[in-house]
């Protein structure tokens, strides 16, 4: 890197004030955002900014003058400038085409071209507006009609299709921001957030539920009511069921792409009575089978 004083065009003896003046004068001329078509300006601006970062700071300047640090590494890191976005993005909110409307009034071919281009820009579609909509797990499976209240007080009715998944985005055509001219409205994009459920979880199209059953139901079998996101159904618990026994309710899962449904998988959890029960104690103490069975057999000691 060249000598920072040389870059800024000041003497080594220049005061801090003179340095700042020199820097500002150059920066105003060379700032990349104020020189959108000038590639050289960005290079030069980086050079003067780097030089000023060094000698514009009293402490760093002293060390530089004493030869403790050199100008190498004083360049500013790569930075994205406003012009990089304003020139490349077609439809950014800061675009302003009012600068030459007067040119369009004449009758020549140039004015016609300008008018055509302005029409293309004038009839721009409005922006899409993004919202987040939290729903319950059950609503995500069974579907629901929700009403979203927007910050401006208006409401938006959103039909949640059955089987929607976390993060899915619903597009409501024409419910976004107004466009200009004949551009029409943008869309409302609604990201669905599914609240965690205490009982149900979902994996793919299948729904999992842990279901407590009594000892009696597990040992003797029973027909019991099981909740599903679309309402309770009756399920047969086979005789001799156990904690961990997995039962499948076919077609009670989430709707899938092919028009069918996943399954609901019910994992049983055998619950002893909440209060100690003398009858049960008497039975178990006289029950030999309960003493020989070791459920921890396969555990490493």
């Amino acid at each position: 890197m060249k000598d920072p004083y040389e870059i800024l065009g000041v003497a080594r003896t220049a005061s801090a004030d003179e340095l700042q003046k020199a820097y500002r004068k150059l920066a105003k001329k060379l700032h990349p955002d104020l020189n959108p078509g000038n590639a050289e300006a960005e290079e030069k601006f980086k050079e003067i900014a780097g030089a000023y970062d060094l000698v514009g700071d009293a402490e760093k300047r002293k060390r530089f003058d004493n030869g403790e640090i050199d100008a190498a590494g004083a360049e500013r890191p790569q930075q994205k400038y406003y012009r990089d976005y304003a020139s490349s993005e077609q439809n950014h909110p800061y675009a302003d085409n009012s600068g030459f409307t007067d040119f369009m009034d004449s009758e020549d071919g140039f004015a016609e071209l300008l008018r055509r281009s302005a029409r293309a820009q004038a009839n721009r579609r409005g922006h899409d507006l993004e919202y987040r909509l939290p729903i319950e797990f059950i609503e995500s499976i069974a579907g629901a009609n929700k009403r979203l209240t927007l910050p401006d007080g208006t409401t938006l009715d959103v039909a949640i299709p059955p089987g929607i998944t976390e993060g899915q985005v619903l597009r409501l055509r024409g419910k976004g921001a107004p466009g200009s001219g004949k551009g029409g409205f943008g869309d409302a994009l609604i990201e669905v957030v599914i609240r965690l459920d205490h009982s149900f979880t979902r994996q793919g199209d299948d729904i999992y539920l842990e279901l407590p059953v009594t000892l009696t139901e597990a040992v003797l079998g029973a027909r019991i009511k099981v909740p599903t996101p679309t309402g309770a159904v009756t399920m047969a618990v086979p005789k001799g069921s156990n904690t961990g026994t997995m039962l499948r309710l076919r077609g009670k899962g989430a709707p899938n792409q092919t028009g069918g449904h996943g399954d609901q998988l019910v994992k049983l959890k055998v619950m002893l009575p909440k209060e100690p029960n003398p009858e049960l104690e008497t039975f178990v103490s006289g029950w030999e089978g309960g003493k020989t069975y070791n459920p921890r057999e396969e555990l490493v000691p």
């Binding site: 959108p36 406003y82 012009r83 020139s87 302003d96 030459f100 300008l114």
Partner: peptide, 23 residues
Amino acid sequence: VILHLVDQLYGMRSTLLELRHAV
């Protein structure tokens, strides 16, 4: 003031780009 002028400058540049394409 500067932002207003900068926005017009970039607006004109983008129209010029479109014009160049049209031509």
